[in-house]
């Protein structure tokens, strides 16, 4: 059984529900483009969401067919992406992470500022900070893609684009050109990758 890379995305309920899902789709779709086996889905128990509640969106990437497809959660995330920096204070975002994981945060603050709120930071090999909200405009939220629906809005228009770019730079798991190819806001992906500050730990 090939190793399955687990990507967990934390987003705020309702306001970031769609962009969170889009980010998981960008991760999966770009890896799919590179010929990997992928899965992107919403956490079942976090929905239906309420304004501000921390939400989890997931992606899995593997060289072989994913056997653990039905597991509700990414129990051992290799990569964690946080779409709103205040979530790191409220949740144990690194829960279950194997040592050497990667964290990507959307924040205006510095990496050191953020690390103060992460007591289990020894699990990380790097932290990447990008001001995604400064790069991409807010996109009106629609709920077309929730509860297993088909996405109507173009995937990767808002903050999911620069965050996917930053994740590509931070992890090496995704090819930047593949992310650019699958995202609606292509400039945003490139800007996110450029602006992302990777700090090795």
């Amino acid at each position: 059984m090939a190793e399955v890379k687990q990507v967990t995305i934390w987003a705020r309920g309702v306001t970031q529900d769609m962009e969170g899902r889009h980010l998981s789709l960008l991760v999966a779709n770009s890896a799919d483009k590179d010929g990997k086996f992928v899965q992107a889905w919403d956490d079942y128990a976090d929905l239906p969401d309420r304004v501000g509640v921390p939400l989890r969106k997931y992606a899995r990437i593997s060289e072989e067919e994913i056997e653990m497809r039905y597991e509700y959660e990414n129990k051992q995330p290799n990569v964690v992406i946080v779409m709103d920096d205040t979530i790191i204070k409220g949740m144990d975002i690194l829960h279950g992470m194997p040592k050497g994981g990667v964290l990507v945060v959307n924040s205006k603050r510095s990496a050191d500022d953020l690390l103060k709120f992460i007591p289990n930071k020894e699990l990380l090999s790097s932290i990447t900070v990008v001001d995604a909200s400064g790069i991409a405009a807010d996109v009106a939220v629609d709920f077309m893609g929730s509860e297993g629906g088909v996405e109507v809005a173009a995937v990767g228009k808002g903050i999911s684009a620069p965050l996917a770019g930053a994740a590509s730079k931070a992890t090496g798991l995704l090819k930047l050109e593949s992310v650019v190819a699958v995202a609606a806001n292509k400039e945003g992906v490139k800007q996110g990758a450029e602006a992302a500050k990777v700090k090795k730990l």
Partner: peptide, 13 residues
């Protein structure tokens, strides 16, 4: 009612 709701969301669309 969850989880079948998505079917009707999609059809109403």
């Amino acid at each position: 009612i969850r989880p079948y709701t998505g079917i009707m969301m999609e059809l109403s669309k």
